[in-house]
Every structure is written in C-alpha cells, then in structure tokens.
Design a protein around this nucleic acid. Structure first.
Length: 565
DNA sequence: AAACCGGGAA
DNA sequence: GTTAGTCCCGGTTT
C-alpha cells in the first residue's frame, strides 16, 4: 500500500474526495477535479468533492477517458484509490455513448452495440411511451429501437433518469443561413479577437462537425466573456439565432456586444421584449418574456417565438436559471443547435440532468488559474464576519420572535454597523459598495457613513450621477439595495460589503461578487465581505454561500468578532 | 410615438 | 418563510 503524504487528495469509497487547500498542488488538483467531480463543501482547510454519475457523464461527453480520470486520482491521492471508485468511474463513464440516437431519413432510432442494453431499456416504463411499436418482451426484431420523431428530447430526459444518457447524433436543422463574422476591430477601433480560452470554448462547442458539434454548455466564470463566446458560436453556425437572457439589461448588453464585436448591422439584431416585439435574423429575448401568461391556466403567450423563424442556433444565457416551463419547450427543440452559457452547472432546483440532456453536456470550462494569472479576472478574498447581537434585549427579541421575523431581526442587527465602520477604515483608499436587502437598514448605514444610497426608487438620472462620481472617486462609498444584483451599469468596485442577503441564493451571491470581480488597473485583487449575525438563521446559509464561491474558485475565510461596548 | 404609471406574477 | 426588485401588460399622459 502506497502513501504519499505530499499529495493533496484523500479519495474515499463513498465517492467523496477531500482536498487540502494548503497543499502546493491545491490549484492543480482543483482544476483537475473540476473535470469530473462536483464541489460539495468548502470551508477553509479541506474542500469536499463528490463524484456523481452526472459529473462522470459530463467528463465522458467532454472526451475524457476513465483511464485519464483514474490516472488523475492516482497522481494526486495520498492513499490508494478505493477500488470501488475506480470501477464506478469505469462503469458510469462507459455508459455515456453506449446508447446513440441517430437519424435515418426522417426516422429516429436508438442504437447500441449492446443488444441486452437495448432490450433492457425497451422495457423501462418511462421509455416505452416514446417508442414506436415497443418490442415484445425479450425480443428485438432489429438491433435498434424506433423513437417517436417528436420525442427526441423526452426520450433523452427519460434515458438519463434511468441511468443511461444517450449520445445524440441525430443532427440538426441548419436554420436560415446568415452571413456573420467577428470583427477584427471593435466599433471604437480597438483591436478585437477572441481570447485563447474563448476561442477554445467556441471550438469545443463546434467540434465534431455537423452531427456531434453544435450543442452543449460552456462554463465560464462571471466576467470571463460569455457573450463573446456566444457571438463566436454564431459566427461558427452562421444561421439565424435566438438568444435568451435573464433580464432586459442583459438583453441590451447582448445587443450592444453583438453590434460591437460582429459585423452584423443594427437592423439584423432585434429585441423581443415588453417594449419591442422585433423578430430579426438575430433576436434577443428574456426568459420572463417566454414564460409570460396573461393569467394562470392560459398558454404562454410568446412561446411561438421559438418557431417564429427557422433558428439555426438558440443561445441560453445563464442556463442554470432556465425556468422549468422552458425546459418543456426545449424538449421539442432538439433539432436546433443550442448553446448553454453559465458560470455553474449547479441549479437551485436540482435539474442539472435536464440541462445535460436537453441543452447538452458540458463542452468546456476554463481552468481558473489561467484567467487569474493573465489578469482577466481579479483574484478575490471572501470573508464571512460573524457578529453577536449588541445587547441582550435584541437577543431576546430574536429568541422569542416568530420564525418569519427572526431572519429580519438577524439581518438588520445594528451590531453590524460597527463592523462596517471598521472595514471602511481599513479600505479608506478603495472603492467600496455596501449591499443589503432591507431599505431601513441601508438608510441607517447611509446616515452613519454619509454615503449616498441607491435603491429601486432612485431615478435613473440620479443613479447615473452617483455612478459617475463613484467612478471618478469623488464618492468612494455607495450603499445599494438589490438593484446591485442585475444592474449592469453599476461601476466596478474592488471591495464589497454585504450586510444582508436573501435566503442563501447562490445566484445572488455570485452576482454580487461579480460586481467586484472586474480586473483593476492597479492591484488585481478584490475583497468581498459578508456580515452575518452569529448563531442566527443567517449563519445557516453560510455553507451554501461558501459552496458557490468555492465553485467559482474563491478562497473563503470566516472571522468571528466581538463588539465594543 | 414615446414616456410614464400601477397591477399582477413568480 | 421574507423582501425588494424586475418584468410584462395595458392604461393614460405628453
């Protein structure tokens, strides 16, 4: 039995993997694990990963072999790798691609080298409804199963649920051709080209030609240029494209980026939103638009957009936020090329498998170190600061409060203000955003610090003035409400202090961190603080928070403070 | 035609 | 479980 104490991993038979953050090989191991494992927990010293069927299928779809995965584990592990894990790696990875979905003429077939497997799945209750003439028990007339033409998406979902993800080789409709290329210089005349990893991402999406290439998910951290990858994909497909975004701000940003970075004319790029209902060769819309119903029990009013044109490519921005009703529509759109863009494959609703089967497996993710080393993103330190209640009265209020009031009391703990003051002193020379969700609390902090507040009610003109002052450094501190989550026009800061947040939504956390993540001219570092009340319901969300941030590659620290009386 | 306002939804 | 913000729509005002 071998023992390599200098190695960073402990690989366990329950498919969890422990990673020591202090190891000199930490970064190497983290990037290697991102290929085939999911992160579960990430406190300071030891991070926990898990190898799941889905994580192995994603690796297999990326082209990794079981040998490579086993080799990685062997190389990085302190102790011998448990035999059952090695055989799980082999078994699960081998399952991907054993079933293939192909098209012959207009007919769809499920094929496999393995006849027993075809028989086995042909008897699955969830699969049968999608087959044409399901074979009688134990018999197969030909070595293939005929699939109902309209149910390509549904059978893919059904198969992944029974543990056999199918490789979809049934090809795509080309869509209406469109001449589009990337510009070599942006509209402002700056030289423009895809960064090497963006180029690789587009290549990974497109690789494999007409059948294999052209559907899948690209995982890139915020600020790494997902839009540009989408534009690169458009320039590869060269067909009419529908882009789905999370909100109108993102929609406008896509439009601006497309006009800036591609040679498309403004009249070729349309906005389909509450304001405008344009359908152009490139059309951008929002998920809310698509899921809008005049009332319950009525159909989605704008779903027809999916079939309004002969789209050759559909781009799903922030695919981890794709609403469930849209999945149902996506199941019917399997013959259209599609690109999912996201910073994380983890969904709050656990529908990661749907993304895998209906949008496509992970095609590319960037090693974090690459981005950091080249200065494309700032490296951030995240600190959770735990404060007690300042006095027993408040503590008692909290103790006897209805559970629904508890969160608010903890979130608005005035003891946090002391910490805010301390942090502002430490970051006197920095651009600081103070972010919170309760307006009363924000106004209180604004009064205390003398910094201006921006909330949903702040008129756009006023926001613009404050943003401008902040950019120039005339106002070093801004207090902002939830507008911060999505406002794209919010200027960059290098310090963010979160004084209250919603119930552990990782999305929200990422958005907030994204605010401070743009590379800075001087020092390429940023700080993100979250202040929570100790021993309160707020602290319960701390694990979730850490998880997300570590998924994104940040280091996370916890600090407990006492208040001055 | 564009800007603005309030209601309802998730 | 809560809160604030966002989006859509359909109305009115400018």
């Amino acid at each position: 039995m071998s023992f390599h104490p200098e190695n960073p991993l402990i690989v366990q038979s329950d498919r969890t993997i422990l990673l020591e953050t202090a190891s000199p090989r930490f970064e190497e191991a983290r990037d290697a694990l991102s290929l085939f494992a999911e992160i579960v927990k990430s406190p300071e010293h030891i991070h926990t990963y898990r190898v799941t069927p889905l994580s192995l299928w994603n690796a297999a779809a990326l082209g990794a072999t079981p040998e490579e995965v086993k080799e990685t584990l062997l190389n990085l592990s302190k102790y011998e790798v448990p035999a059952n894990l090695n055989s799980d790696v082999e078994d699960f990875m081998a399952r991907y691609g054993r079933l293939k979905l192909i098209k012959e003429g207009d007919e769809l077939f499920l094929i496999s080298e393995d006849e027993a497997l075809l028989i086995e799945i042909s008897r699955q209750k969830s699969v049968i409804p999608h087959l044409v003439d399901p074979p009688a028990a134990g018999k197969l007339e030909e070595r293939r199963l005929k699939v109902k033409g309209e149910e390509r998406g549904l059978i893919k979902s059904a198969l992944i649920r029974v543990g056999f993800p199918v490789e979809d080789l049934a090809g795509y409709t080309p869509g209406t051709p469109m001449d589009v290329d990337l510009r070599e210089t942006s509209l402002e005349g700056e030289a423009f080209g895809l960064r090497d990893y963006q180029n690789e991402a587009v290549g990974a999406f497109w690789a494999g030609g007409s059948e294999r290439g052209g559907s899948g998910t690209i995982v890139l951290p915020c600020g790494a240029g997902k839009t540009v990858v989408g534009i690169g994909a458009m320039a590869s497909v060269k067909a009419h494209t529908l882009v789905l975004t999370t909100n109108v701000t993102a929609l406008r940003q896509w439009r601006d980026e497309i006009l800036d970075k591609s040679d498309l004319d403004p009249e070729d790029v349309g906005e389909y939103s509450g304001d405008k209902k344009e359908v152009k060769p490139v059309t951008i819309t929002t998920y809310q638009m698509l899921t809008y119903r005049p009332s319950k029990d009525e159909p989605f009013k704008h779903f027809h957009l999916f079939n309004e044109a002969d789209w050759g490519l559909i781009i799903y921005d922030e695919v981890h936020l794709l609403p469930a009703p849209v999945f149902r529509a996506v199941a019917n759109l399997q013959s259209r090329r599609r690109l999912g863009l996201t910073a994380t494959l983890v969904r709050e609703d656990g529908k990661e498998e749907e993304v895998f089967s209906l949008i496509g497996p992970k095609k590319y993710d960037v090693p974090w170190r690459v981005l950091e080393k080249r200065g494309y993103i700032a490296s951030a330190t995240c600190t959770e600061i735990r404060v007690p209640f300042p006095d027993d009265d408040l503590r008692l209020d909290y103790a006897i409060a209805e559970s629904r009031d508890k969160y608010r009391i903890a979130a608005c703990n005035p003891g946090k203000n002391q910490v805010v003051n301390r942090l502002l002193k430490e970051h006197e020379k920095d651009q600081v955003l103070i972010i919170g969700q309760y307006l009363d609390q924000l106004h209180e902090i604004a009064e205390m610090t003398g910094a201006p507040v921006i909330t949903g009610q702040t008129p756009q003109a006023q926001r613009d003035i404050l943003y401008e002052k902040f950019r120039k450094g005339e106002e070093p501190v801004l207090v902002v409400s939830k507008v911060a989550n999505f406002a794209v026009d919010l200027p960059d800061a290098n310090v963010a202090i979160q004084v209250s947040g919603t119930f552990g939504s990782r999305q929200e956390e990422a958005q907030r961190l994204g605010r401070v993540l743009r590379p800075k001219k001087n020092a390429n570092t940023a700080s993100f603080y979250t202040i929570v009340t100790r021993d309160s319901s707020e602290q319960d969300f701390s694990n979730k928070r850490q998880l997300f941030l570590t998924e994104q590659g940040y280091r996370y620290k916890i600090e407990t403070v006492e208040l001055d009386s």
